[in-house]
Nucleic acid binder design. Sequence first.
DNA 1: TTATAGATGTATCTCAAATACCACTTAATG
DNA 2: CATTAAGTGGTATTTGAGATACATCTATAA
Lengths: 157, 157
Amino acid sequence: MRLNLHTDYALRILMYLATKSDQASVDEIAGAFRISRNHLMKVARSLVELQLIEARRGRSGGFALAVAPEAINVGFVVRKLESLESFVECFDRGSNNCPVAGACGLQGALNGALAAFLDKLDEYMLSDLLPDRNRFLRQLKAFDQAPNSPKTSPIAA
Amino acid sequence: MRLNLHTDYALRILMYLATKSDQASVDEIAGAFRISRNHLMKVARSLVELQLIEARRGRSGGFALAVAPEAINVGFVVRKLESLESFVECFDRGSNNCPVAGACGLQGALNGALAAFLDKLDEYMLSDLLPDRNRFLRQLKAFDQAPNSPKTSPIAA
DNA sequence: TTATAGATGTATCTCAAATACCACTTAATG
DNA sequence: CATTAAGTGGTATTTGAGATACATCTATAA
């Protein structure tokens, strides 16, 4: 049981953009966290489709929050990005091949537990994840200047 | 985000043994659900190590519950079988490479949500998952006799 | 006005981990 | 002692994360 990296990265993008309160390119964000630029781009696409961020193409383009951090719900993001229909085989009507479906309380128990999980996340807005934005930026900057740092250093700007 | 098949299978073994309230071989259980015998054996091993079931080798051997269904907690099983330290990168002190650890509230939020998930499962005992054991057995039997059924039919016995 | 740099966007390949399968060994009992 | 079942190690397969490469768009500088 693992949160998809896709969702993890999505939340990092949102936190980064919220902290910067300005647009940023995928290269910048990928460099800041030292993660795959191309994978991050795919994640950013998902966020665009969810209308949580906006993309501007071309030179001086980038991504920016489309909604205020106070209005972005963490549970919403996780619900949208995690394909919870396949949390366990019997959740997926299509591929379910479990012979005891209906006679087994596991489905209901897991469903309730998953609901509790999401309900808890619903209590958080993006802004709640960033209690100290200065510290957030400071740590990213320190990381950028640490050994093994990527060639680009757009954070310093 | 998916529950490992390993955990799913573990719960199926437990439910099967509880319903039968007798010992059963891995072949029997694998046949009943039409899932991999060898994989299921590995899962059964995990349950033996957790002392939830007992193994008897040799002819007329098999697996049987080591604890009453009313005393096996679903949350306990899931906690033991799912490696939740790697639920998200920053949970694992060893491999965590996130530069904003400490300045980011995501870790706390996810931790709380995961706790809510497990707490919910703690409300269920194995016996709660089996409200109608006759129906459970009936469906398994029907599945066994359906087309594409495996050659062995130990359920009929 | 046009070339170019800097950005988003997309198609495809590689690799690792989870899962499934296979062959074999060991143990117990009828 | 033959049979049935647990137990083990190794190998194939599948799936999704991540990497690579390339295509497309647009502001800006010459």
